[in-house]
Design a binder for these strands. Structure first.
Lengths: 240, 240
DNA sequence: CGTGAGCTTGACTTGTTTCAACCAACGTGG
DNA sequence: CCACGTTGGTTGAAACAAGTCAAGCTCACG
């Protein structure tokens, strides 16, 4: 195997930076496999485009390398629920590796740079390296735990609690990837994203955010967000 | 391996009846392993008792054989969200196999008969029979899909929609296990269970259920529920 | 320069919660 | 056997959080 092949795969810096992620595991497979087994293809997509549609048949597993995306479910009458924001290093859904029909749509928020791996190839590679099953299971269970937390938030928390938790959660995930420092982070979300993620309306999100700003908790300028009073925000979020 | 060992494991009829379930997979392991590898222990617990506490360290994986249970998260101020109702054949959470700290509490609703498998033993058995990894992954991804649906329901659906979907969902799961016929099912849930599962208050649940009854959609007597107008209920549920 | 996407704000409506009272069924102990 | 507390369910009135509707603003973009 040539070094260039490893290079092609590992150039995904943000992916690699996030240790826990499956991406790293797949990169490892690529290292030990023959290059022919796992050929990622790279793609770039502008903001506000569909990466995949609900119920679409994917013969490919997408992994985000740069930019933000959202996975969401849309009901027939137009109501939408965002299930997760995908940050660099995130696999769109581990489920896609084993079931080619996508359970939800995925949409870019910023310009997104992502790679796709044919899932037949990923599966084959995993069979050759069964130690990776553990890792996928771990990622899958993390996804489950996150989904459960979302359910608790949506079922039992008030609007200000939900929004503050979303912000703090994003900060934490970005920090894990080395993409946020102190209390400053990129924040490309439109208010309608926040609304769809928290089960609220855009209007109400606007009101709550204004309230936060007025209370000196956060500042939002130019698509980035600063938390000015993290203790206050955590208090509102009821964080353990 | 003696037949009696198989007998001991497979006596869990309800488990076995539910094909998709991990329980069956584990039973298969038990069949091919030496009996010493996988010794289930059986327990019975009365209604309204804790099977396990949140954050508790479990050295054991519980699987429901008879009766209903609920897994839930409780916030410090007392708010509760039920994440799933556990029916016969359900494993409490696949996550417990790999991470001994329970992510949520589990509480019996009726009297519950369950088995516990030491998770070190389950893990060892799985390593011997790697074909089962696929199965666990499948169960784990099912759990994820169910959690996502819950999030959509809680985030974007109104009270009557949530409650009707819960009822129809339970009917379907019971039917898969051969525990419901026509539109009649056991229904041991108290209204506070429904409230905690749908993110509503007990009072509101009572009002919605009364409305359903008045509209001739359902009847509840003596801890069992009949759906009198399934088309009407599905219409309210906005089922695809 | 017009158009559309995104945000803000205010007035009003609605779904759900809160509070409270009350009833029925049930088990328990005197 | 009755008195009693507990658990579960119902109903109505009032309060409140969030939704809806609508107008107006900024800004980026073709």
């Amino acid at each position: 195997m040539q070094l260039s092949d490893v290079g092609a795969v590992t150039s995904c810096d943000a992916c690699l930076a996030y240790e826990l992620n499956l991406c790293r595991a797949i990169v490892q497979v690529a290292k030990v496999s023959s290059a022919a087994v796992l050929q990622p293809s790279e793609r770039t997509i502008p903001a506000r485009r569909l990466i995949c549609r609900e119920r679409e048949l994917l013969e490919v597993v997408p992994i985000i390398c740069q930019g933000w995306a959202a996975s969401a479910v849309t009901l027939p009458d137009g109501r939408r629920q965002i299930l997760s924001f995908l940050l660099p290093g995130d696999i769109v859904s581990t489920a896609v590796i084993f079931d080619p029909v996508s359970p939800c749509s995925v949409e870019s928020i910023t310009e997104v740079h992502y790679r796709t791996f044919k899932h037949t190839e990923v599966k084959a590679a995993l069979l050759k390296h069964p130690g990776l099953f553990d890792r996928i299971l771990k990622v899958c269970m993390d996804e489950k735990a996150r989904a459960d937390h979302l359910a608790v938030d949506l079922g039992r928390r008030a609007a200000d609690e939900r929004i503050s938790r979303l912000i703090l959660n994003l900060l934490e995930r970005l920090a894990q990837r080395g993409l946020a420092r102190d209390h400053l982070m990129d924040f490309p979300l439109r208010q309608h994203h926040i609304a769809d993620a928290t089960g609220l309306t855009v209007v109400h999100v606007s009101k709550v955010l204004s309230e936060f700003r007025r209370a000196g908790l956060i500042e939002i300028n130019d698509r980035s967000l600063t938390i000015s009073d993290i203790a206050g925000l955590r208090r509102i979020a009821n964080l353990a």
